Amino acid sequence: MATETKEKLIRVLQLMQTTDEKTPMNATQIVEKLSTEYELEGVNRKSIYRDIALLQDCGYDIVQTEDKRSGWYMNTHAFADWQIKIMMDAVQQAKCISINEAMQIRENLLNLTSKRGRSRFSHMMMPNSGNVNAKENIGAYVETMLEAIYQHRKIEFQYTEINDDMKKVLRREGKKYLLNLYAIYWSDNNYYLIGVHDNHDNLVNYRLDRIVNLTMSDERAVDAKEKVGVNPEMIIQEYIEKSVDHFQGELIRVEVEYEPGQAANAILYDFAGENIRVRKLENGRCRAVFQKMDSVTLVGWFMQHAGMYKIIGPEKLREEVCRELNLASEKYKQQ
């Protein structure tokens, strides 16, 4: 196959990747695009039919329209537009990547849809201030960690903490940490590194946005089964639930009383989920029962909404929230 013919086939494929069911392209349009966009002159219309057939034989999901005169379109893209939308929204909110990295990811995602699909995202806002403070090298760090896990190598880095002046400083005078990395976990718009140090067998976690000077070590990583246990995936998942997501404690039955209303109903439903049970009281108020993990997060939620919901039970949770509210009140009374 001549070089020019090979290029034409590739260009036809690229043009097909910009189409979808509502924006097909026929042979005449393809020939015109090959001329104006790729400077391929004198292309025979009939050769386009052969190119399309060859691409179909190679497994590309190219479909001819019902009237045939409208041409063909790519029936299946790498991702559906709704999937691209979800990924773009996640990137836009991510705190751990910079604006430039977010813009690059956004452009890469848009290249995975049709020309019409791309125009459907014109309403999308540019990456927002959530990305502003991130370092440019976070993407490179993620790539390094993926390669370290693949090659079974340890990673080395320095860790930062916040001092009294609200500045990031190196922890332990710039000590270098050597970690057997077993998982990279996403939680609350941040990445967490889950692993074990050589000198003990307990899992630890580090926030990626607080890491600097991360590199892949030449040292071979210790297998997770040797450091963590015979079922490391389950053990790591349990550790994440208790130590990263802060879901500590047992599942408990929570009962609250509140004044029903649009805001109160929606906030409680979002927090408690679909299994919430509600009954109306004679005084016009409501009582709701649901299950939640007994955790610091639970106490914090009730403190945040203390003016809206009154805890009826369990008594232990009620007392803990009252104690925290009293402590907060005393601090505000202090001069």
Rank of each mutant, 00 (worst) to 15 (best):
K316I: 10
K85L: 11
N133H: 12
I311P: 01
L281G: 09
R207P: 02
I312H: 13
V299H: 08
N75D: 06
K280T: 15
N26L: 01
S35F: 13
H246A: 09
G117D: 00
I252D: 04
I155M: 01
V43K: 00
A328D: 07
S187D: 12
S122M: 05
C58F: 15
K225T: 15
R116F: 06
N131G: 02
M1L: 11
N137K: 09
H200C: 11
D198Q: 04
W186T: 10
L178W: 07
I311W: 04
N75R: 08
K175Y: 13
I211L: 00
D165H: 14
P260Y: 03
N275K: 14
N213M: 13
I311L: 05
N199I: 15
Q64F: 07
Y141M: 15
G71R: 00
H246N: 11
A221Y: 08
V256D: 01
R69P: 05
H77P: 05
N180H: 14
A224S: 03
E161H: 09
E66V: 07
Q83F: 03
Q92W: 10
A263Q: 14
N44H: 14
R285E: 13
I30G: 07
K22P: 04
N111Y: 14
D61N: 06
L110D: 06
M126A: 15
K115I: 02
I48T: 01
F79I: 08
K292E: 10
G249N: 08
N199F: 15
C322D: 10
Y73N: 09
Q158F: 09
D188W: 01
A140V: 12
L193Y: 01
H123A: 15
E39H: 03
L203Q: 05
Y239C: 00
N275H: 08
L214V: 04
V222H: 00
R118I: 09
R106I: 02
V132Q: 07
K95D: 08
A263V: 11
E320M: 05
K115V: 03
Q56I: 09
M166E: 11
R287A: 09
E37P: 06
G71K: 04
K333P: 06
M88D: 05
R318C: 12
Y38W: 08
K95Q: 14
M74P: 03
D89Y: 12
N100S: 15
L110M: 10
I84V: 10
G249F: 03
G59K: 03
T297E: 08
Y239A: 03
G71D: 03
V43W: 01
A288R: 01
V31T: 04
T65W: 00
I194K: 05
E173K: 14
L193W: 02
Y239L: 01
S295D: 06
R153G: 05
E233Q: 10
Y269C: 09
A263G: 11
Y239D: 02
R277M: 11
S243P: 01
R287Q: 05
G249M: 08
L15A: 11
M103R: 14
V12C: 05
P232K: 06
G130I: 02
M216L: 02
V299N: 05
